[in-house]
């Protein structure tokens, strides 16, 4: 983990209530796709930092300056304030969380993202493709106006299927409707990676035919393992989503309900 100031390079709206911010600063602590940053939003009253996943990072792990891309949805006061920032600096804790492990992917990994769970899969897809793997992506959104990054994934060379719940674009339905029924065969997959709202993760868990990795979300205090605010139970004992997570292996997940 590293605390440093990042400069806002750009901050634009890319879909309904969804913004993309590009930041310039010290990216040495960013090691893997699926990690997150925790952002301080200066505004007298706001207290906790806002944890947001890393969508892309140039010069990740390198010394000197790099750029960091984050995509966030405006849901409350903090993200609303962020969406209005056009320039200046942000105090950021970077390099948080374990991130996805690409060594387990096999030749044909499948990436499944829902809503603002899509961004971390972009950096992951980039890495997998650079490792010579054939990447398929399923992107799920509620409706057409909320779609983002479909073209960006295509430009990386991934095969992309987009679904919307209301059918206003692409296939109508849920991400699981677009998942191959079999892991074997021409349209099959060797492993999967997913990030999205919990009901989607549960559905993917049931529909998936291989091992895979899930990225979870939870309300966090610190984001770096100090407060135990975001703990969850797993097969192998309790884990902190911010520290031993947010990415967990399929076989260690214990669904609570």
């Amino acid at each position: 983990m590293k605390q440093s100031l990042f400069e806002i390079v750009s901050n634009i709206q890319i879909a309904e209530n969804v913004f993309k911010m590009v930041l310039s600063g010290d990216t040495e602590a960013v090691k893997k796709p699926g990690q997150f940053v925790n952002i301080k939003i200066e505004d007298g009253g706001l207290f906790l930092r806002r944890p947001i996943s890393v969508c892309d990072c140039e010069n990740a792990g390198g010394s000197g300056k790099g750029t960091l891309t984050i995509i966030y949805k405006v849901v409350g006061k903090g993200t609303e304030k962020m969406s209005r920032m056009k320039s200046g600096t942000l105090d950021i804790l970077s390099g948080l969380g374990n991130g996805y492990d690409t060594s387990l992917s096999g030749e044909k990994p499948l990436l499944i993202g829902g809503g603002v769970g899509v961004p971390p899969l972009y950096m992951l897809a980039k890495k997998l493709i650079s490792e010579g793997k054939k990447v398929s992506v399923i992107l799920g959104f509620n409706k057409k106006s909320e779609i983002f990054f479909e073209d960006e994934f295509k430009r990386l060379g991934a095969s992309v299927k987009t679904v919307t719940v209301d059918g206003s674009y692409g296939l109508r339905g849920y991400v699981t409707d677009a998942m191959p029924k079999d892991a074997e065969g021409k349209d099959g997959y060797t492993y999967f990676y997913t990030c999205g709202p919990e009901p989607m993760l549960k559905a993917v868990y049931k529909a998936s035919k291989t091992a895979g990795q899930f990225s979870f979300e939870e309300r966090m205090g610190c984001g770096f393992g100090a407060c135990m605010g975001c703990s969850c139970r797993t097969i192998t004992g309790s884990k902190r989503i911010c520290k031993e997570g947010p990415v967990m292996e399929k076989e260690e997940i214990l669904w609570e309900d």
Binding site: L46, F47, G78, E218, R219, S231
Partner: peptide, 9 residues
């Protein structure tokens, strides 16, 4: 969880 909530200051 959730066992954390944001408040003013």
């Amino acid at each position: 969880t959730p066992r954390i909530a944001e408040c003013t200051a």
